[in-house]
Simulated scan of single mutants.
Amino acid sequence: MTDQPTHVHDSLGAPTMFVEAANGIRYAYRRFGAAGMTPLVMLPRFRGDLESWDPALFALLAETREIILFDNRGVSATSGTTPSTVAEMARDALAFFDSMELEQIDLLGFSLGGFVAQDIALIRPDLVRRLILAATAPRGGPDMHGWRKDIADAVRKDEPGPAELLYTFFKATDASQAAGGAYLRRFMARSLDRDSASSLATRDAHYDAVCEWGTPDHGALQRLRGIRQPTFVANGDADAMIPPRLSHLLGGLIPDATVKIYPDAGHGFLFQHHTEFGADVNAFLDR
């Protein structure tokens, strides 16, 4: 059973609502934007929750479409225990979609969320109309068996702060670091009804899932041939967490994919280049 739906344009004013799914999990979610078109569901990064996005990006996307965000099982305000595999996360996401009676969606997955988005598109192809894979990698791809030590140490701290986010998500240039600082100010713009931080158990389960997904497996790359949806693959040119060469690998193996690499940017390219990325996403979804 869902809370009464609300349609507000501004992400900062969207209330956190809850829905009980058939798997017994109570999911926290928000929905906002222009109702009527195919909704865009956005799946967040490692340790991500309802607050992990950029209000400036939402302002561009929500002008013409409805946006749905949710905490998957065990994350922040959603009940249950966070699973440690991407496959389980995809099944839990599908349970949420079913509870919301979503018959067709556009799907944007960022980082770990992009792993989950790939599995969703393969498990239930008729659900996903168009797919956006941001700063993410294919299952079994090379050099994805965990992150390099400095990155892993930073993002796995008990309480990572602004310094860790600037180091891991933005390039070590003046322009990129300045854009990261601006994102951090926008990131904190919502003062009321903020989502609770994800737990250390979620951190550990998410990293297990990242490592399991990234275990080298050349044969697993062939799964991408099954993604038939039009797909937009994007990344920054200096992503230290997921190298942009893996974006090109995704683009080469998904039959109907377009790849764009954004300049002077790292893992958080979609926040640094939010205006350009938002316009590119809107154009791709409207095409």
Results as ranks from 00 to 15, higher is better:
E276M: 07
L107C: 09
R185M: 14
Q177H: 12
V86R: 07
V233R: 03
E66W: 02
F277L: 05
A175K: 13
P142K: 07
D71K: 02
A35H: 12
G141E: 03
L270V: 11
R186M: 08
D193L: 06
W53G: 01
D204C: 13
A152V: 14
R139I: 13
L94I: 02
L57N: 02
G278P: 00
G48K: 00
L133F: 04
A22I: 10
D264W: 00
L270I: 08
G24N: 09
H9E: 15
E159M: 15
F18M: 12
T82G: 02
T2K: 10
A93E: 11
D92P: 05
I151V: 13
F169K: 08
G109W: 07
R203I: 07
A137E: 07
E66I: 01
R203S: 10
L43S: 02
M241W: 06
I132V: 12
D153E: 13
A93M: 09
I25S: 08
A220L: 04
A117P: 10
A56K: 13
R194D: 06
H206P: 02
L221R: 01
I227K: 01
Q272F: 06
L165E: 14
P142E: 14
G226Q: 08
P39S: 11
E88G: 05
M100R: 03
R129I: 11
A283T: 15
A163N: 15
D54L: 02
F58T: 02
P39I: 08
A209V: 02
I242T: 10
M188A: 15
A152N: 14
P230C: 03
N282W: 12
M42S: 13
T275G: 13
N72M: 05
A178Y: 14
M17A: 14
G36K: 08
F58R: 00
L166D: 09
D119Q: 15
M188S: 15
S176W: 04
F70Y: 10
D193T: 04
E159P: 15
Q222G: 09
W53Q: 05
A134D: 01
F232R: 05
A172K: 12
R203F: 07
F46A: 04
F97K: 03
A90W: 04
A93Q: 09
Y29K: 00
G13L: 00
T38E: 05
D54H: 00
A135F: 01
G36C: 08
A257Q: 12
Q222M: 15
D106N: 10
T202K: 06
N282L: 14
